[in-house]
Nucleic acid binder design. Structure first.
Length: 579
RNA sequence: CGGGGUGUAGCACAGCCUGGUAGUGCGCAAGCUUUGGGAGCUUGAAGUCGGGGGUUCGAAUCCCUCCACCCCGACCA
């Protein structure tokens, strides 16, 4: 492919001196300012030429790595007939995020939010024998999900471009091999994109996958909370993270623990004021925080240590169904006491206790009577319950694998890989003939990358106060030429140099606008093109060009005759730094 | 869906409280000067003041209502 040459004066590469006030995140503001995108509506964006170029380069890397694993690219429709989604049950279960509509004949259709059903249909029609497996199909397609709250420009759109791949295997073991291959391919992809990322354990979602991992791009603006271990490979989304055994609370413990005692706590409506009312020796980390949740219409007392936070996702996993916190009114109705005076002792219903709350030798809690609390509470003696792991892990907790201290990060979910098992193939009767002639369901996996989101994520990690700093692997151009000389031969020099650069395989943007040097420099920095060549009278008099690296800001004066080769070497260095 | 906020020229904003000819900066067009870090002067074009309704002699401004967008939360295969 011939490297591109673009003249800024003839291009739709509009830069903005000020960002629209709606853009809060660096990536959002910069992608607007640098003319990558424009907003059409909530969560709907246009990609202008510069944005499209970056997406193209990301796509090229993704395709290269997937093709290398034998994946085959296809393209499925963006509109789905309802019947497919009805087969899997998702016509109903997808909820409001699914944009449904009717065609002229009154048939139900939906904008595709993802494509498991359609690709499963391809498999059941076209793949008949184990000899055709494993198979890996992928596409780069627009998805639409009517998100409750789009945000951050390309970070969370309602319409977005996703690379979704699907694997079909003969059994679980083979599916795991496909999964591992994709995990490695994704690792190469994210590395080549110049991203600082973590592969984390994640919630497999309602699809009941046997294994899944998220590729989380570290960024302050990330929507997900991650927990990682600095000493070993453990990393998990906070939704599912666990921690290792913790030292017993530091608070003093009497031996033996005296009998349970009731204490009136007039005016107390929450944990901190209860602790204050109980006085010395009582603290949040030796109190039992008891929350009431509704589970299948029944109240359940959920106990965590006072200084811990309940992880609703983990609790839902333990109870086996989605749970919601009961309102204050419902708590009063269920228990006969206000939310501030609830405890596990004699609780009228099921009790689940976080293992660290159960481990407290001597605790305090609500008495299930208005403004009365209990002290000297001991698990097993004064109350019982199922001991489970349901608390939110925090920075500083011990790693569940090696015991080292865990730290917290925020991340942008750039990719997610799953082993789906036979969930879709069974529901949709997608079978193949096995080695012994038996009929078997495909064991599937699915693998997504948020392509448009990656543009934002890359900018989140690669920018400074002046603008974007594209990794060389995805930059919209390799080199920007900034002619600011009035010499008669200036145009000729620019033409010769840009030809030489393209001979070296570098794409070139020429800022031939009739602008003052300052404007061109500022835009070159805003656009984030890795290498800038300034052609001014100063250098040209001596037959030299000035080369500036966007990443380091370092400048060098280079003879015009050597400039192309010099820039090629610099570019190779930049690419090496990433690969 | 709950809470908060914003809608005035392409962008950023003032004007609204206290009703009386719609403004500023950047950008855009033209001219002259300028030319190594977002130039100066002159002239010009550009706005149904988010939509609808109401009050009033008169509404960007007051009232009602709808809509859009942003932020926090809930939600997120």
């Amino acid at each position: 492919m011939r490297p591109t040459l673009t003249r800024l004066s003839k291009s739709l590469l509009p830069s903005l001196r000020e960002a629209p006030k709606d853009a809060q995140l660096p990536s959002h503001a910069l992608s607007l300012r640098a003319g990558l995108i424009r907003q059409v509506g909530a969560g709907l964006y246009e990609l202008l030429p510069m944005g499209r170029m970056v997406l193209r380069r990301i796509e090229a890397i993704v395709r290269e790595e997937l093709d290398a694993e034998g994946a085959q690219e296809i393209l499925m429709p963006g509109v789905l007939p309802a019947e497919y989604l009805r087969e899997s049950g998702r016509w109903e279960s997808f909820g409001d995020a699914l944009c449904r509509f009717k065609d002229r004949k009154g048939a139900d259709l939906a904008l595709a939010p993802t494509h498991e059903e359609i690709v499963t249909d391809i498999a059941r029609r076209e793949l008949r024998s184990y000899r055709q497996l494993p198979a890996m199909l992928y596409q780069v397609q627009t998805k639409f999900r009517d998100e409750p709250r789009p945000r951050g420009g390309l970070l969370r759109g309602r319409e977005f471009i996703m690379k979704d791949a699907y694997s079909f295997d003969v059994d679980e073991a083979a599916a795991l091999q496909s999964y591992e291959r994709m995990r490695k391919a994704y690792t190469r992809i994210f590395t080549r994109l110049g991203l600082d990322f973590r592969i984390v354990e994640a919630d497999s979602g309602a699809m009941g996958g046997s294994r899944s991992a998220e590729f989380q791009i570290l960024a302050k603006s990330g929507e997900d909370k991650l927990v990682t271990c600095g000493a070993c490979a453990y990393a998990a989304n906070a939704e599912v993270a666990t921690s290792g055994p913790v030292e017993r609370s530091a608070a003093s413990v009497s031996e033996p623990v005296p009998a349970l005692r009731r204490v009136a706590t007039p005016g107390v409506t929450d944990m901190p004021s209860a602790i204050a009312a109980l006085g010395d020796g009582h603290a949040l980390d030796n109190a039992l925080k008891t929350l009431v949740v509704e589970h299948q219409g029944e109240p359940v007392a959920v106990v965590v240590r006072g200084d811990h936070e309940l992880n609703l996702m983990k609790l839902s996993g333990v109870l086996g169904a989605t749970v919601t916190l009961a309102s204050r009114e419902k708590v009063q109705a269920f228990v006969g006491a206000p939310a501030g005076s609830i405890g596990p002792v004699n609780f009228p219903g099921r009790v689940v206790v976080d293992r660290e709350a159960a481990a407290l030798a001597q605790a305090s809690c609500g008495a299930n009577e208005t403004e009365v609390h209990l002290v000297n509470v001991v698990f097993g003696r004064d109350y019982v319950g199922e001991t489970v792991d349901i608390r939110m892990v925090e920075a500083g907790d011990p790693c569940p694998r090696c015991g080292a201290e865990l730290s917290e990060h925020r991340g942008i979910e750039g990719g997610h890989i799953f082993v789906l098992g036979t969930h879709y193939s069974k529901k949709m009767s997608a079978h193949f003939t096995g080695e012994r002639g038996e009929e078997l369901p495909f064991v599937m996996g699915c693998y997504g990358i948020g392509m448009t989101r990656l543009i934002a994520a890359i900018i989140e990690q690669h920018h400074d106060t002046a603008g974007i700093r594209w990794p060389a692997s995805v930059a919209p151009f390799d080199v920007v030429l900034v002619p600011i000389s009035k010499r008669a031969d200036a145009d000729e020099i620019v033409a010769m140099l840009s030809d030489a650069l393209r001979q070296e395989g570098l794409s070139v943007l020429i800022d031939d606008r009739n602008e003052r040097p300052g404007v061109k420099f500022k835009d070159a920095e805003l656009f984030g093109i890795p290498l800038r060549v300034t052609l001014g009278d100063r250098g040209l008099e001596a037959g030299k060009a000035e080369v500036t690296a966007r990443h380091s800001g370092e400048a060098a004066s280079v003879a015009l005759a050597d400039a192309a080769a010099y820039l090629k070497r610099m570019h190779l260095d930049l690419m090496r730094g990433i690969d």
